[in-house]
Amino acid sequence: MIKRHVARIAVAGVIALLVPAFAAPASAEFSLAVVNDDFAAALPVDALPYANVQDLSTATAEDGEPTSCFGSTRTVWYSYTPTSTGMVTAGTGPDYPGIAVYTGSSLDSLTEVFCRPLYGYAPVTFEARAGTTYLFRTGADFAEQVTFRLDVAPEPEVDFSPPGYEPSVFDMVSFWPSVHDPAGLGIASYRWEFGDGTTSDAQFPRHRFTADGDYSVRLTARTVDGRSASASHPVVVRTHDVSIDRLGVPSTARVGQTVTVTVSVRNTRYAENVEVRLDRGGPFGYEQVGVDTQPVPVMAAGRSTTFSFDYTVTADDRAAGKITFRAVAAVLQNRDALPADNELLSTPVRVS
């Protein structure tokens, strides 16, 4: 919309008429002069969304104007009569001016509907009933140019972070919502649907999926006045798990003898690349004496993949009188769901 501001300037006895043009933003009705300074001159809001800019530096407060939850010597007025009932949200930019909402036909008959004080920041949201005229008073002594906005109350902003890993059927997965009500009334309820037929009304739920699969988890948040919105994210559940079934060692050995140590790795879920490390016990703990990596296919229960290591017995082993081996298995490309069964100690090998 283009507004024209007319000014007269006298130069050397000649009166010049200047008509500069101001281009307002497409989303706002812009006026350099305060035309809605008084209650009776309230600017009508014809349709939503609505935005209007006024320069409060020239505004005043008329005699008899209510103060409600804020007082100001610079105020402007707006009016709105909805054709249908619904929640509306009013706000200002910048946020610190106060806003009061009334019904009534004159200054001395106003009934306050809602009021946001100076520096209240949150928007004013209320149910506007069809056919009722609502009057908006907004202002602040220290404000200059202020934008008044009125719109249908927006839906809540809803999102959540899915787990940053592939959980297993043994994991309790935590979900953290990111929910905000831009209308300022607040969130009343949360509804989680985990895609496996189960739900939760907790704000911060923890959930265990009982089977591997691809699930669509959905969160629906509802405000105190009934507005709602939802967000969904996929959650991939995969249970990767190998275990050491057996650590085979001879019962006795002698110095200089090379013995074979076998490690049996069981896998019944997904084909994995597995690294097995063989450690030997000593006076200061365990030290690595061998490592091997190989594919471990899925096998039926009772069957396993064998890793073999050769170890030559030393004089230090004879001094200790025995050798205790430790095998540790690690899944390389995935997270092992139950790492506690990935480690096994051998029976002591007596050394002569």
Rank of each mutant, 00 (worst) to 15 (best):
52 N>L: 11
43 L>I: 08
52 N>C: 04
47 A>C: 01
47 A>H: 09
48 L>Y: 04
38 D>Y: 03
24 A>M: 12
56 L>H: 02
58 T>K: 12
48 L>W: 03
41 A>L: 00
19 V>N: 05
36 N>H: 06
42 A>P: 05
33 A>E: 02
60 T>V: 15
54 Q>R: 13
18 L>H: 10
56 L>C: 04
52 N>H: 11
25 P>Y: 13
31 S>R: 10
55 D>V: 12
59 A>M: 04
40 A>G: 08
53 V>C: 02
42 A>E: 04
25 P>A: 13
54 Q>I: 06
25 P>C: 15
43 L>C: 07
16 A>I: 13
42 A>Y: 00
45 V>H: 03
58 T>A: 14
34 V>Y: 08
44 P>N: 12
21 A>M: 04
16 A>R: 15
20 P>W: 02
54 Q>P: 07
30 F>E: 07
20 P>E: 07
31 S>G: 13
28 A>D: 04
26 A>G: 15
34 V>E: 03
52 N>F: 07
20 P>Q: 10
27 S>W: 15
57 S>H: 11
17 L>R: 06
59 A>F: 01
17 L>G: 07
28 A>S: 06
59 A>N: 06
18 L>W: 07
49 P>V: 02
51 A>N: 00
20 P>R: 00
49 P>M: 00
40 A>Y: 01
28 A>E: 04
21 A>T: 09
39 F>A: 03
22 F>I: 05
49 P>S: 00
24 A>D: 15
25 P>H: 13
44 P>K: 09
60 T>R: 14
48 L>M: 00
24 A>Q: 13
35 V>N: 06
30 F>P: 05
60 T>N: 08
53 V>D: 03
28 A>Y: 11
57 S>I: 15
58 T>C: 14
20 P>I: 03
18 L>C: 09
19 V>Q: 04
52 N>Y: 06
20 P>A: 06
44 P>H: 07
22 F>T: 08
54 Q>M: 11
19 V>H: 05
56 L>N: 01
51 A>I: 00
56 L>D: 04
49 P>I: 00
41 A>V: 08
27 S>V: 14
29 E>S: 14
17 L>S: 01
37 D>V: 14
57 S>D: 13
45 V>Y: 01
24 A>Y: 11
29 E>A: 14
41 A>Y: 04
20 P>H: 01
30 F>S: 10
35 V>I: 08
37 D>E: 08
27 S>F: 13
37 D>M: 01
31 S>P: 05
32 L>T: 02
30 F>Q: 05
33 A>Y: 05
29 E>I: 13
55 D>A: 10
27 S>C: 11
24 A>L: 12
37 D>G: 05
23 A>T: 13
22 F>V: 15
38 D>T: 14
35 V>H: 05
22 F>P: 14
22 F>M: 14
56 L>W: 00
23 A>L: 12
39 F>H: 00
26 A>S: 15
